[in-house]
Amino acid sequence: MTSATDVLRRELGPLLPRLRRFARALTRHREDADDLVQLAVERALLRADQWQIGTRLDSWIFRIMQNAWIDEMRARSRYQQTFVDEALGEHVGVSTTEAHIDAIAVRKAVSKLGDEQRAAVALVLVEGLPYKEAAEVLGIPIGTLTSRLARARESLQATLSAASAPLEKRT
């Protein structure tokens, strides 16, 4: 018998790298991101019957992750334990290609955005979700999403155009 859980398990596998990418953008920390993905997978499998076939699975899991992360941040702030890791801006392995240097700069700029703007950027620009889906993941109106997105873009533009000057000289 194929249960909803089995269907979900099969569909979830290929999504894992994207879930982790979103988790890293949210948490800015590799271990936290792995933990968050694991928690989201566990929760999703337990609630398999709540996922409506025909709706986007990625959005549904992103929402589980977003909510779990907000809970986690609340719990941590209760005892002033926040980890902000620079690891998001780093890269495993040394590479000096221009694309890599740019990727590092961009990830660093994204990691410096506030939590709300960062989540909007991760969902729309990185994951390519339509505004409507992204707004549902975050539980906000579309207008709020677009204004966060617009402010995030301005800030990225400012950070990256300031940062790219010395970078160009180096190459």
Binding site: R21, D34, V41, E42, A99, V121, L125, L156
Partner: peptide, 26 residues
Amino acid sequence: MRARVRAAFDDELTEPMAPGVLQALE
């Protein structure tokens, strides 16, 4: 900007997954 941000996160997709995540799925 859209293309640049997307590309910056793309290579994360190819890293191996953490064992705990795979176990949770199985």
